[in-house]
Design a binder for these strands. Structure first.
Length: 517
RNA sequence: GGCCCCAUGGUCUAGCGGUUAGGACAUCGCCCUUUCAAGGCGGUAGUAGGGGUUCAACUCCCCUUGGGGCCGCCA
């Protein structure tokens, strides 16, 4: 038995991002599937950072990836900042591990030095491509004599190490969602397992293992039982399996999940708009909604239920049921799912999220100014803040289900947080073109000064004024909304006015109507 | 160019030889209504094409077409 399959061994899976950018939507789903598989099987979810290419890694992306994973609720059992017996979990800290296995491969005759320069290889590849031939490495350094080696060394060439692929035979593996996949070894070329660091461009990379090599060593040493990763790695799999076999390691079970595509059917990337998890967080998408949407991209427990709690996902996640076909990312459905979560969210929590959003967007201050003056007033500030929160809670309440993502607060509630209402001149004058409407607004401005300012009275007053002028209620409601909020859409007008308050309402009626006259 | 993967409405999917091909998003219409949402009701829309196998194919096999991936001293 060469693989972990059927061995009743503790499931161990890993997500292995390279810290060269932000967490991508596709990466997030790969992480999610790994995490769900681990949790479903009561196994271990490992986070390993593949930072071998030091030229391309940066600290800030590592932090944001960790932050995004945590935000999504994908906690890891082993990895950065977490105990584990299979560390270190940064590839850059595992460099002393790899030479040993390179040596073993040499001893077993599976490895050899290659003196071809990147430039030469590039030229040959381009030539092959132009002749419509397979561009792979031709194996010319496989059997170099010591004379030739000396000659190359004398030229100052630093060799890379390549893995020798068997000339004959086929390499097959079973993929949990695709079944048997077979590759003819003849079609595989000898790939580099240890970089040479020969040129200036590559300085700093010398002697480092390549992805295909380090990945296998790390997975084997970390006793990864199931490799769950993107579709794009299928072609790499036979090479990796051959490495496992050459080294006598137990092979993992493979699961290649389909890619997430953009609207045009090409793999989701920056040019399709925003693909970083961080962006969705900033826009006010909820982590549970994003997770819910992502899991539906390729997996459905029954094809009926759309809203799934994480506990249910864990309970029902059968990885063999993951779809084979790629899925197109659809932000409309994500938005719908988000709105479903928002509809059922506790008002206090929703309000907190809105406040958080408003603060980060600069629409409101995080705390009253008095806060910074002295401790003695901070108690009063707390009260003030509590009052602010109650107010915002009411605003959130009247906006209701219109809030599909938190940032929708801007389209529906911005007029509560600023006095600088921007009017479109054309819109405004068309709204106020009717003499009776202008008259009505003027009357309302007077009446609002003296009525009891709650939404029932406000509504009554507006309707009365409209009737007295021989207008339909909506003929005055729409202009009134526009003058007060600068928008043609929004929550219930009368409740909005009540929340806006008498003073601001009257002031805006004055400014709004003055603008046109 | 070679090899590999994939194929149910615009999108995500259910289906696992016999179904009026189900659900959801989006879309359209109507109702509700102060706008926009929400909600209710209803509608449009799908098995890529061609061959087999079978009493019977969305379902199994082959080919074609289409889409994607890999063929890096990137991961």
């Amino acid at each position: 038995m060469k693989s972990w399959e059927g061995q009743n061994k503790m499931v161990r899976v890993r997500f292995a991002p390279s810290p060269t950018g932000y967490l991508h939507i596709g990466g997030a789903r790969t992480a999610l599937f790994n995490w769900l598989f681990a949790r479903h099987n009561k196994g271990v979810f490992i986070l390993r950072i593949e930072d071998t290419d030091i030229l391309r890694t940066d600290e800030s992306s590592l932090e944001s990836i960790l932050e995004d994973l945590k935000w999504l609720g994908l906690d890891w059992d082993e990895g950065p900042n977490t105990e584990g017996n299979f560390g270190p979990y940064f590839q850059s800290q595992r460099q002393e591990i790899y030479p040993k296995y390179i040596k073993i491969l040499f001893e077993k005759g599976y490895a050899y030095y290659c003196y071809c320069t990147p430039f030469e290889l590039e030229q040959r590849r381009n030539l092959a491509l132009s002749e419509h031939k397979t561009p792979g490495y031709d194996g010319r350094c496989r059997n170099l004599g010591s004379e030739e080696k000396k000659k190359y060394e004398a030229e100052g060439r630093r060799p890379a190490v390549r893995f020798k692929i068997p000339d004959e035979g086929k390499t097959e593996f079973r993929d949990l969602i695709r079944g048997e996949v077979v590759f003819d070894n003849k079609l595989l070329d000898d790939f580099v397992i240890l970089k040479s660091g020969v040129s200036a461009v590559n300085s700093g990379r010398g002697g480092l293992p390549t992805y295909n090599f380090a990945n296998v060593i790390d997975d084997a040493l970390m006793e990864i039982t199931h490799v769950i990763r993107g579709d794009e790695h299928i072609s790499n799999t036979p090479r990796q399996i051959l490495l496992y076999r050459a080294l006598g390691f137990k092979e993992p079970v493979y699961v290649h999940i389909p890619l997430i595509l953009g609207k045009d059917g090409s793999p989701l990337s920056k040019r399709h708009g925003t693909v970083s998890v961080g962006w969705y967080r900033e826009q006010g998408f909820l982590p549970e909604a994003l997770v819910n949407y992502l899991v539906l991209l390729g997996w459905a427990p029954d094809g009926i239920r759309q809203i799934l709690r994480v506990e249910d996902m864990i309970k029902e996640f059968i990885i063999e049921r993951v779809s084979k076909n790629p899925a197109i990312f659809d932000i409309d459905k994500l938005t719908w799912i988000n709105s479903e979560y928002l509809k059922n969210m506790d008002p206090d929590k929703k309000t907190d999220l809105v406040i958080e959003y408003l603060v980060s967007s600069g629409a409101i201050c995080s705390a009253p100014m008095s806060d910074v003056i002295s401790d003695s007033v901070s108690e009063a500030s707390e009260l003030h803040r509590g009052a602010e929160k109650d107010k915002i809670k009411e605003i959130v309440n009247i906006i209701g289900d219109r809030l599909k993502i938190i940032s929708d607060i801007e389209t529906y509630g911005s007029f509560f947080f600023t006095d600088e209402i921007k009017y479109d001149e054309t819109e405004l004058s068309s709204k106020l073109s009717d003499e009776k409407v202008r008259k009505g607004l003027a009357v309302l401005k007077e009446k609002f000064a003296s009525i009891m300012f709650d939404h029932q009275n406000i509504e009554q007053t507006v309707r009365d004024v409209a009737r007295e002028l021989g207008l339909k209620a909506k003929d005055i409601i729409h202009p009134l909304r526009y003058v007060l909020t600068g928008k043609t859409v929004g929550p219930s007008l009368f409740e909005s006015i009540a929340l806006l308050g008498r003073e601001k309402t009257i002031a805006r009626l004055k400014i709004g109507t003055d603008t046109i006259f």
